[in-house]
Computed example of a mutant assay.
Amino acid sequence: MKKIQVTYFFEDSGFCKDVFKSVDIPHYYYNRDTASGVWYTSTPDYYANDRRIQQDVIIEVVAGGRVIALDGNGDFEGKRPFVPFNEFEKSLANSFAGQQPKLRSYEEMKAKLLSLPGGEAYADPHRYWENWVFNLDFRHVTEQIVGAASWMGVEFHILAIQYTHIPTGFVFTNYRFRPASLPSGSDSRDLLLYDWQAEDLSAALPDQSGINKNKEE
């Protein structure tokens, strides 16, 4: 079977494909359909699908000087398909959630915020504002590395980042990840996993006893 060595070029999520560049010069470009896994030759200008690659071609995906995937349109012994970044991201979230069964989803976190004092006005779906949920104190956050993962030879840190919701004062932890090479405080990607400690929020409510007493009188 023929072999082609390629390196990862970029993800074209808008057209559901990953673009690769040949190791050999002159460079040729190839696309892999994210959903079907089918490989195509690619046009060098707009990286559009050109022709479907023949089944007798093995595509070696190289990263960091080593082959990290053996892929192609045919079936062959030792085939190790390329894993798209979005699949890696989903797998990472599922794996981490499986290790931490008490973690909450984004919908649960949103419901918690809307249940707090001051959230009533935004609980109505016709009046709900995303800006209220994400009104966070980004100047005072703490982050901690709680795990690691790798994709395409790139190491990632799993982060536990603690935020405070400004309107309610509610403190929660959001789990995210980013390349290990980036410094603390750099942009990260959201795993949409959360947790928080149960708190007695009654102290945050205004004292209603005097008001109720006056009404009774």
Rank of each mutant, 00 (worst) to 15 (best):
N31P: 01
Y128A: 08
A148R: 07
Y163N: 08
I145R: 06
H140G: 03
E216I: 12
K2Q: 06
K215G: 07
V146G: 05
L70H: 11
Y47F: 15
Q162G: 09
F85N: 03
K213W: 11
L92W: 01
E217T: 12
I145G: 03
E143C: 02
S202M: 12
P125H: 06
I211T: 12
K215W: 13
I145W: 02
T7I: 06
L114N: 07
Y175D: 04
Q99P: 03
I58S: 01
E87Y: 13
S42Q: 11
F172W: 03
V83A: 01
D71G: 00
T34F: 14
V154E: 12
S186Y: 07
F76M: 09
R80P: 00
S184P: 02
G37N: 11
P179I: 04
F138I: 12
P125L: 10
G64K: 02
G153T: 02
P84C: 08
S42G: 04
V6E: 00
W129T: 05
N212A: 14
N94Y: 07
E216C: 04
S184A: 11
R52H: 03
V171L: 00
S115P: 04
Y40D: 02
E217I: 15
M109I: 08
S42N: 06
L182F: 14
P26D: 05
P167I: 04
S115N: 07
E77G: 02
N131M: 05
K2A: 07
V83Y: 03
C16E: 12
K90L: 15
N135S: 11
L113V: 04
V19A: 04
I166E: 13
P206V: 08
V57W: 00
N94E: 14
K112E: 13
L92A: 12
N131H: 05
V62F: 00
F9K: 06
N174E: 12
D195S: 07
R51T: 14
L193C: 06
K215M: 14
G14T: 07
G98V: 11
S22N: 03
R189V: 06
G14V: 10
G74D: 11
F96G: 00
P81D: 14
D200W: 03
D18E: 15
M1G: 13
D207I: 04
T43A: 10
H157M: 02
F10A: 06
T142F: 05
V133L: 15
N49A: 11
V154I: 13
A203D: 13
S105P: 07
N174H: 02
G169S: 10
N73W: 08
G118T: 05
I25T: 15
R139A: 11
E120W: 10
D124C: 11
Y106M: 13
S91T: 14
L114E: 08
S150R: 08
P101T: 10
N174S: 14
R32Q: 10
H140F: 08
S36F: 10
F172L: 09
N214Y: 14
